[in-house]
Design a protein around this nucleic acid. Sequence first.
DNA 1: AATAAAATTGCAAATTTGTCGCAATTTAAG
DNA 2: CTTAAATTGCGACAAATTTGCAATTTTATT
Lengths: 140, 140
Amino acid sequence: MHYETLKSLLKKEGYSLTKPRKLVFDLLLNQEPQSMQVLTQRAIGKIDRATVYRTVELFERLGIVRRLNVGWKYKIELSDIFTGHHHHMYCTNCGRMFDLPDSPMLETMIDSVVAKTEFSPRGHQLEIYGLCASCQRLAI
Amino acid sequence: MHYETLKSLLKKEGYSLTKPRKLVFDLLLNQEPQSMQVLTQRAIGKIDRATVYRTVELFERLGIVRRLNVGWKYKIELSDIFTGHHHHMYCTNCGRMFDLPDSPMLETMIDSVVAKTEFSPRGHQLEIYGLCASCQRLAI
DNA sequence: AATAAAATTGCAAATTTGTCGCAATTTAAG
DNA sequence: CTTAAATTGCGACAAATTTGCAATTTTATT
């Protein structure tokens, strides 16, 4: 069912759903946000590094994935269309990412602060960083 | 007066305030967040590229600067200690960054959403992206 | 102020990350 | 099934970032 959505998003803009594109999509489906390093790593032997980059770039342009800014690098996850709008908590110790509970009120508040300005927002990202439950127990 | 704060933050952890470190600090003082490219560029003839990277990493570790995630890259700005806590709006057209108006209520709300989880937050970053006032007028 | 030890830096090389052109392959259209 | 267009793999390239190590600077001590 997600493949249908994917396919139609591509078709709509004149692109086709090829094997490499399906693979990149699969690498992202039901996963926590992935770094390019991991993506290219996992694609080895299947598709070329350049193709991974090109695909991610295309997917981002079409709104299929979004690029999350995390620490020094960025990670890729499927966009709101597939996952729903949400934010992340990033554990600076183990590097894992966790979803922040949804809060419509928070979203509203963000919008209203931006509305005070002359800026025309297209979206936003909130990242919480700190220690996840298990890393806290390890007492760094 | 900012130099005193800087010096004591370094001293506290056993580091000294050297000329290169002072330079990097100066490159950040009263500026909008800077990319590494610009930082290394501006340091040419004064200090080595590698030193800029090492200094930024040290500064981040000591909480002197923070790394802002912007688009695909990141930018560096002095931390809350020097600038006060605030968030940014990033213009995807011209690349400039603007401060979001302060909103204690927003901060409280973010904290309270995180408090519902087992995550132990050390901080957070909110980035709004879209078009700034002048780029809107140019109607991209 | 002189000196020795420790910390820091510059330099050059290595690695990693991301991009590009083009020929070979795959996909879409008829 | 054939052809045109789109896409991919491959290699080369360019940019960004890291690293080892010798030279320099800083700090602590006399």
